[in-house]
């Protein structure tokens, strides 16, 4: 499991900018950021180094930040990389709450999944998937 920094953003001007500024002022580097939005709020899911420190700074500054455990799977950067992973999840009856993907280098992609199941990681390892360790992600 790796730690995702999650930031709740109300839907008003400048909130994302403000949150990013707090992270920047903390001299924290973001590796990836994904935004989900609804009509009146948004959620930013962030990979960064020192997520605990980032969450602390954000909460102090009056944002709502939390640390969330998610599973990051390293898959080959080729057609079907994600599809195979999802088919496997489906076959194991794992329900995916949300997910997103990013490419690390030419060969590998990282698929991040939030799954409501305690043994999801074990099952993925059983299925032969490569789980990314925290230090690997923060060191990307």
């Amino acid at each position: 499991m790796i730690t995702q920094l999650t930031v709740f953003l109300e839907n008003s001007k400048g909130r994302l900018s403000d949150a990013c500024r707090v992270i920047a002022d903390g001299n924290i580097n973001m590796k990836a950021l994904f935004l989900s939005d609804t009509t009146d709020f948004g959620v930013a899911r962030i990979f960064c180094d020192t997520p605990e420190k980032a969450a602390g700074l954000l909460n102090e500054a009056g944002h709502r930040a939390a640390l969330t455990s998610v599973i990051a799977v390293s898959v080959p950067n080729e057609p079907g990389g994600l599809s195979k992973l999802l088919q496997y999840c489906d076959s194991c009856d794992m329900n995916i709450e949300y997910g997103y993907c990013f490419i690390v280098d030419g060969d590998r992609a990282i698929d991040v999944l939030k799954i409501d199941s305690d043994d999801a990681e074990e099952k993925l390892i059983e299925g032969g998937f490569t789980i990314v360790k925290p230090e690997e992600v923060y060191a990307i």
Partner: peptide, 13 residues
């Protein structure tokens, strides 16, 4: 929300 609420899941919010 209270600090402990799982804000990462839009469905729960």
């Amino acid at each position: 929300t209270e600090p402990g609420f799982p804000i990462d899941e839009i469905r729960k919010l």
